[in-house]
């Protein structure tokens, strides 16, 4: 082929509906293909180049800024209904590079790379002096708070024993001195009231995930932990999201209260708030 042919990219407005459509599919892709952390939402499209692709179609090369929402990735709530983590809560942003193929009117993510980073402590304290900053997840106070909270969760469960999946965020609250943690759990084949050795428990074949928020006060008598958990209905894993999964209509269609699971007693679906 003569040199220079087919090497020109198409210029497109970052706020063009076609660019936004590709960006939303890309953000949907990372939310559907992450097993840890929180769902992210589109904040800003930084750059877009549209390259011709042989034999047909076009490839959207995108640079996107995202923001962390308060929904865990295992939470089936559509991301359009997930609140963005606010600055005073110590917001987290994502910087993403994507390549999205558009062919026959359908979008397909070819490449995705994201890096997330929390807002600076200076910025958080500027908008909210005295607010709790994100703490390292391996901090001993964080580990202790999660352990205490998990004990509370299982003490309140009339069904499965819940195993810790991951600690997703933690904050050391100055006043009153306490530790706030958020973590994901999964139901096991052990009964919470009967478990003797949690290490021998196995995750259920039909995975049952939950997400908990807890405040742990070490100074209080008896180590008080206040915990609220929500257990999600099992969600099928998608190998590749459909091009229209990001549309508001689809979001509304699935934005309904999570029905109780068939294999867990209703009382175990929402635990808390419990205080020990």
């Amino acid at each position: 082929a003569p040199p220079g042919l087919g090497l020109a990219y198409r210029e497109l407005n970052c706020d063009d509906p076609e660019t936004e459509q590709a960006a939303l599919v890309a953000v949907d892709y990372i939310n559907n293909h992450s097993s840890r952390g929180y769902k992210h939402t589109l904040n800003q499209i930084d750059k877009v180049k549209v390259w011709p692709r042989r034999p047909m179609g076009e490839v959207f090369e995108l640079e996107i800024d995202t923001l962390e929402t308060t929904c865990h990735v295992l939470d089936p709530t559509p991301v359009v209904n997930c609140p963005v983590r606010q600055l005073k809560e110590h917001a987290v942003e994502g910087d993403c590079d994507f390549r999205v193929l558009k062919q026959d009117g359908q979008f397909l993510v070819l490449f995705a790379k994201c890096h997330s980073s929390p807002d600076s402590a200076e910025d958080v304290l500027k908008v909210c002096p005295g607010c709790a900053l994100l703490a390292p997840l391996n901090d001993t106070r964080v580990v202790r708070a999660v352990e205490a909270a998990l004990t509370v969760v299982n003490a309140g469960s009339n069904g499965s024993y819940f195993q810790l999946l991951e600690v997703t965020r933690a904050q050391l609250v100055p006043l009153p001195p306490s530790t706030y943690v958020e973590f994901a759990v999964a139901a096991t084949d052990c009964i919470a009231k009967e478990v003797t050795d949690p290490a021998k428990c196995n995750l259920l074949a039909e995975k049952q995930y939950g997400f908990c928020k807890a405040t742990f006060n070490e100074k209080a008598v008896g180590d008080a932990a206040e915990v609220t958990c929500t257990v999600f209905q099992t969600q099928p894993m998608l190998l590749q999201p459909q091009p229209d999964t990001n549309t508001p209509t689809t979001g509304v269609a699935t934005a309904m209260p999570i029905p109780p699971s068939a294999n867990l007693p209703a009382a175990a679906m929402v635990v808390g708030p419990l205080v020990v």
């Binding site: 407005n13 706020d15 904040n43 499209i45």
Partner: peptide
């Protein structure tokens, strides 16, 4: 190939430069 000067510039649609709008807030 003969090209009329100024033709390309005159016919090129105006594209607003990126980045696009901020939907929430900027960190």
């Amino acid at each position: 190939t003969a090209v009329e000067p100024g033709m390309a510039a005159a016919t090129r649609p105006l594209v607003r430069p990126c980045p696009g709008r901020i939907r929430h807030f900027k960190i």
